[in-house]
Amino acid sequence: MSMTEIKPSSATLEKQRSASYSNINPGKIIRWTLLFMGGVVMVMPIVYMLSTSLKWPHEIYNLSIIPDEPTLENYIFVLEDGRFYKWFVNSLIIATATTVSAVLFDSMVGYTLCKFSFRGRMFVFIAILSTLMIPTEMLVIPWYIMARDFGWLNSYWGIMFPGMMTAFGTFLMKQFFESVPDDFLEAARIDGLNEFQIWWSVAMPLVTPALSALAIFVFLGNWTAFIWPLIVTNSPDLYTLPVGLTTFSVEQSVQWELIMTGAALATIPTLIVFLVFQRYIIRGVVMAGLKG
């Protein structure tokens, strides 16, 4: 094998290189420049977050990216402070529970709206969709009254209940189930599965890309949620990370370096969730082929 291995001669390499240079044209330059600028805009806040988390308090209003005296003191402080763990665990429990619940119920409702025909189906669908047009800020007061009357204030459930099902997820899943051919479901029906089994073991595996995308959205949304958790809780034991982090600022002065350190640590789970589920999105697209 190795004897017949063909290596490109340096001459050909040279030719290829000059060819790729000659491929550069103004259009390409503009495209890459725009993309680069976009990238910088996206990345800058993260870079500042990381850099601030490595600075001493006296240095934080100095806008240089590289700290003069980098330190891990902030990390040590935040990690040694018991509150951070508490909030981290709260956030983890709340975001995980809402994600599982939303993925499950959104896909159940989406499936029903997509694959069953019943009286009022369109009405239900439109009703769900129309809730998308109401911003959270408008909903928090009714939610609050509801939570207060039910005695849900200051509880995990109180923080979670508005996110247990999402209109957007229902809509997304309904659209994805449209792409599942009825033949699959009918074949399973003939094979003797009941409707619940058909949904769970036939339809759901076929929409894993959508489920993963939804899981990412819901998790991120709940992980970063601020207004509602802030309103519904007033005991520091129940704070989620974003709410808890702001308490680093209330005492004498804003402790940006600690907030940024907490935020940097808070991105870790979101990265993990993204990395785990993103694989399924790609795999789902690969196996989507039905016939021929």
């Binding site: 051919p181 033949d183 699959f184 009918e186 074949a187 029906r189 003939i190 094979d191 003797g192 599965l193 036939v202 595996p205 076929l206 196996m287 989507a288 082929g289 039905l290 016939k291």
Partner: peptide, 16 residues
Amino acid sequence: KERNIAMVFQNYAIYP
């Protein structure tokens, strides 16, 4: 399922 029949579909409907 109670009819004891089996059906083969045009696009096969085998689960990927």
